[in-house]
């Protein structure tokens, strides 16, 4: 009797790479999973390389060159960095940026936390939604539009703010033309536009606090302020860390508001590091020097964020 057993076709011959990829071994399966994972990541990785890592490294390389767009770049070693460390105006830019960051982030965190606590207590669903929407709406506006509009409001002679201050018997303030107060005007403008984002972060954090702990504190007779200081703030510390880290990184890159409202004036009183970077590159056509400034700012942001994370070990509590 002739065997009718079906003849199995031989597996196709593969080259080395094919065999390596399709190996039916434990390590082969692990490898396939790893490759699949990286394939899923690939679009994001390509985006990161093309739009972030590549330009960053390009900018790093450019900081060793003298380049004005029109002529071929000329390698000048560390000249741009030597100039950076002896440029008194850059120090002014960093000082202005630091003042703006401290003022703006402090205001943002305090206001956003306070508003989030208040809105969280609103039981009426309609009112709660209304306030959430109202506080978040400015985030959707462009920085340029906000700066132009608030520039009108802060105008010394015709601005609404000085008009109403007049009713209170307060003398007109040179919001945009005095070195003493220009950073306050810019900070207030930025706070108004960005408050909604930080507010939503805090609101989410507060909504997720364990109610049993808060109720236990209330039963134990802890006052409202004590509950906030001893319970809410420690429990909210990871949210506070996230909000302050993201806000500080964002504010270290101050540009829209001072550029549109004052162009850095009067003098350099409201000129930030990023404005100086922009002006060096696209105004003075010193793209190498602008890249050196960008690199210095990158290091500062990295340092500040690193310090924040290091210090967070002492005050952030993860449940």
């Amino acid at each position: 009797m002739v065997s009718k057993t079906a003849a199995f076709s031989e597996p196709p011959r593969r080259n080395f790479i094919g065999r390596w990829l399709a190996a039916d071994t434990l390590s082969g399966i692990k490898r396939q999973r790893a490759i699949l994972g990286y394939l899923f990541l690939l679009p994001t990785i390509i985006g990161l390389v093309v739009f972030i890592v590549g330009p960053m490294i390009g900018s790093l390389a450019l900081s060793f060159y003298k380049w004005n767009v029109f002529r071929a770049p000329e390698f000048i070693g560390f000249d741009n960095f030597e100039r950076l460390f002896s440029d008194a105006r850059i120090l002014v830019g960093y000082r202005n940026t630091a003042i703006l960051v401290v003022m703006t982030v402090t205001l943002l965190e305090v206001l956003a936390f306070t508003l989030a606590m208040l809105v969280n207590r609103i039981a009426n669903r309609f009112l709660s939604t209304f306030f959430r929407t109202a506080y978040f709406l400015p985030v959707l506006l462009s920085g340029a539009a906000t700066a132009v509009t608030l520039g009108y409001l802060f105008h010394y002679d015709f601005g609404v703010i000085n008009y109403y201050l007049g009713f209170l018997g307060i003398e007109k303030i040179k919001w945009l033309t005095s070195s003493d107060v220009v950073l306050i005007a810019i900070s207030l403008t930025t706070v108004w536009r960005n408050l909604g984002f930080t507010f939503i972060i805090y609101l989410g954090g507060i909504a997720n606090l364990p109610t049993e702990v808060l109720e236990a504190a209330e039963v134990d007779g802890a006052s409202g302020l004590r509950r906030i200081v001893r319970i809410v703030l420690p429990l909210l510390s990871p949210t506070i860390l996230f909000a302050t880290v993201t806000d500080i990184i964002k504010m270290l890159q101050f540009f829209d508001e001072p550029f549109i409202m004052t162009r850095g004036g009067p003098g350099d009183a409201s000129r930030t590091v990023v404005m100086m970077m922009y002006e060096s590159g696209f105004g003075n056509l010193e793209f190498g020097y602008a890249s050196a400034i960008a690199l210095s700012l990158f290091i500062v942001i990295l340092g500040v964020t690193g310090v924040q994370f290091y210090l967070s070990k002492k005050w952030v509590f993860y449940r």
């Binding site: 692990k30 390389v49 590549g54 490294i57 390389a61 380049w67």
Partner: peptide, 26 residues
């Protein structure tokens, strides 16, 4: 090595981007 480690991948990305950046700048 049977798999590409995350560190190797990042190294490759970094080297590629550096090469592209340095080569493109001048």
């Amino acid at each position: 090595a049977d798999k590409i480690s995350r560190r190797d991948l990042l190294k490759m990305i970094g080297i590629s981007a550096a090469a592209a950046g340095v080569a493109a700048a001048p």
